[in-house]
């Protein structure tokens, strides 16, 4: 079931478009913001609310990489693997995060604190290498900066 708050937020966005289905991506984002990810039940609830089929909504949910169709940890670490960061020793950043968190891309730490994912260019190329944790950008990364950045996310 979508909550009243979720429905209200979806309806506010829906007012920006002439067709109801157009708000589908916003609806997925809204539900994910409240619940951390988009479950099969949420796909069904959004579909029902917008008058779409579950399959249609899922085909959209699985297309967009910022929509998570699996549970994630309390914080999502997204590591830029695009070209400028790669030149500036992305491999060291990735290796340090793997060792520090003990997980590969797509995995979640056993305490459910962090999920780690690769991400395309974050537009922070003059301060490469970079990563995002939740909504925050972290740049000019080295192992020390990564460690101190992660401390903030409990």
């Amino acid at each position: 079931m979508l909550t009243a708050e979720e429905i209200q937020e979806i309806e506010t966005e829906a007012g920006h478009y002439p067709k109801r289905e157009a708000v589908c991506i916003d609806a997925l984002r809204i539900v994910q913001r409240h619940r951390g990810w988009v479950s099969d039940d949420s796909v069904h609830d959004i579909a029902e609310h917008l008058g779409m089929s579950d399959t249609d909504v899922d085909s959209i949910a699985t297309f967009y990489n910022l929509i998570f169709r699996k549970p994630v940890g309390r914080h999502v670490v997204m590591v830029c693997d695009s070209v400028s960061c790669w030149i500036m020793d992305y491999d060291r950043v990735k290796k340090h995060l793997h060792e520090r968190l003990g997980i590969e891309y797509g995995q979640t730490t056993s305490d459910e604190r962090f999920t780690m994912l690769p991400i395309v260019c974050l537009g922070c190329c003059d301060h490469a290498p970079a990563m995002m944790v939740d909504r925050d950008l972290h740049s000019d990364l080295d192992p020390q900066k990564i460690d101190s950045a992660l401390e903030k996310y409990k």
């Binding site: 289905e21 991506i25 085909s59 967009y64 990489n65 910022l66 395309v120």
Partner: peptide, 29 residues
């Protein structure tokens, strides 16, 4: 003029002009 901010769900292909139109219509881009 009404002006709205749409926050994308990701994917480079949305930067393509017509891919963007489909994304804004709530479809695959």
């Amino acid at each position: 003029l009404e002006l709205h901010l749409h926050i994308s769900g990701g994917r480079y292909i949305c930067g393509d002009e017509t891919g963007l139109l489909n994304a804004l219509e709530g479809k695959r881009a």
